[in-house]
Amino acid sequence: MLFFRSEERVREWSKSRGTPVQPLVSMGQLWMLATTWYSTRLQETSRRPQPDEMCGIFADIGLTGDFWNPKSDTFG
């Protein structure tokens, strides 16, 4: 889970490793993920989102498809 300066840099990195370019996430989307996962982490009642919840969280910020499905057995 890494930062890249641009989509072109992601493509260069992926080509050099022979790995697929996966769905790209904007900084705004990443902040939404960070706050959803961690904004209550220092509270006693905090817990990780469960798989069913994760699908909804990802969909709410526009991250859809098998790649973002924690229960998928096919990977795009």
Partner: peptide, 11 residues
């Protein structure tokens, strides 16, 4: 406009 990329699918 920096981007985040994850190589590994969520599952």
């Amino acid at each position: 406009d920096w981007l985040f990329h994850c190589l590994v699918p969520a599952a």
